[in-house]
Simulated scan of single mutants.
Amino acid sequence: MVETEAGRAHRRRELREFLMSRRARVSPAEAGLPEGGGRRRTPGLRREEVAVLAGVGASWYQWLEQGRDISVSPQVLDAVARVLRLSDAERRHLYVLAGLNPPPPGVEPGRRDMCDGLRRLLNTWMPYPAHIMDRYYNFVLYNDAAVSVLGMRSDVTHNCLVDFFTDPLYRSRARNWEHTARTVVAQFRAACSASPGDEGFQEVLARVKAVSEEFTRLWEERDIEDPGQIRKELDHPLVGLLCVEATALKVPARPDLTIVLHTPLDEANTAAKLEWLASPEGRRGAMYPVAG
């Protein structure tokens, strides 16, 4: 979309206010500057200090903070972001205000351990299946319903893509496996395409190609599809047909993870069957152990 002159002026005003507010938050001591330097009229760093610490000209930084129409590069913005101690979200916001495409979201160091909160989310989703996988489709967490319905368990490869093509238990339950397989492969290609050269994706790709000719055939068709929703029809040994819709969700604070929630569809009395499977009676009748 073409930016209007009014929109450009608004963005530059926001850039000026944002940089001034972030600069005021950083003390000279936090920036590694020596104490002293005379009385400061305002808190935080001076413009000249930000420029020196970022390795840019004082005039250039002043123009940037004034919102002037100047050329900026990702490298320089990253240097300014480092000096101003911006979070990942603030750094991407700086890119947008400067008129550049923001970098992909990263994981804040303080948010790397969110397992307890995410586990509560999955347990709250009971009696419906839910699981979390990393960017390479490796299992991170799953609830009890994912075990009893989808067959997730500890003695498989722990990679959703590999298990989809190699786990005979899941294969025996999936009525629409062939149709779903095409979507799964197309979505994995989209993930690979978004991270060219990522060795983690290449390792998974090599693993699944080595064990599944079906995957290799579908991969060579080069279909590509963004993650979204997938209809699944499962033939469960205890309750028969289950019709669910799998929805892939992202958590902005953990862009490296994907939450997959399975919602019962209004078919085959699926919701009631899932509730029964999660009940004490259903657990006792389960053919496969439920993770504790």
Rank of each mutant, 00 (worst) to 15 (best):
A9P: 04
R207P: 00
D69C: 09
M287T: 14
H236A: 02
F215C: 03
D78T: 07
H10T: 11
E17Y: 15
A145D: 03
M152N: 03
G44C: 06
R11H: 12
G44H: 12
M126I: 07
A246N: 04
K209R: 14
L274R: 13
A24E: 07
E5S: 12
D155Q: 13
K273A: 07
V162W: 13
A145E: 01
Q62S: 07
L86T: 02
A54G: 05
S195P: 05
R284A: 11
R254A: 12
E90V: 13
A89R: 13
G57R: 14
L77E: 02
P105L: 01
N101S: 09
D88P: 00
L150M: 08
W60C: 07
D134W: 13
V239E: 06
H262D: 06
H262R: 04
C243I: 07
P102Y: 15
V290L: 03
T258Q: 12
R120G: 01
V149T: 09
P289V: 11
R189C: 01
G228D: 05
F215M: 05
A286K: 03
C160N: 12
V140G: 02
L86A: 06
A271F: 04
A186W: 02
D235S: 11
A6K: 14
T157I: 06
V208Q: 00
G151W: 01
K232V: 04
M126Y: 14
K273S: 09
L84F: 15
L118C: 01
R283E: 04
E14S: 12
C160D: 06
M287V: 11
W177Y: 01
R283G: 02
L265F: 15
Y128M: 09
R254E: 09
F165W: 00
P227D: 13
S73N: 03
R82A: 08
E48G: 07
T157K: 08
W63M: 06
R46M: 05
P74V: 11
V147C: 06
G38N: 06
R207N: 01
D167T: 00
T157Q: 09
A89E: 15
D144T: 14
M126Q: 15
D116I: 13
G32P: 03
N123G: 09
A286I: 07
Y288D: 05
V96N: 01
E214G: 11
E220C: 05
D163G: 00
A29G: 08
D163P: 00
V80K: 00
D134Q: 09
T216W: 15
P237Q: 07
E199R: 01
G36N: 10
G110Q: 08
T263H: 12
E225S: 15
S212T: 03
H131D: 01
M114L: 10
R46C: 06
P264W: 14
W219C: 00
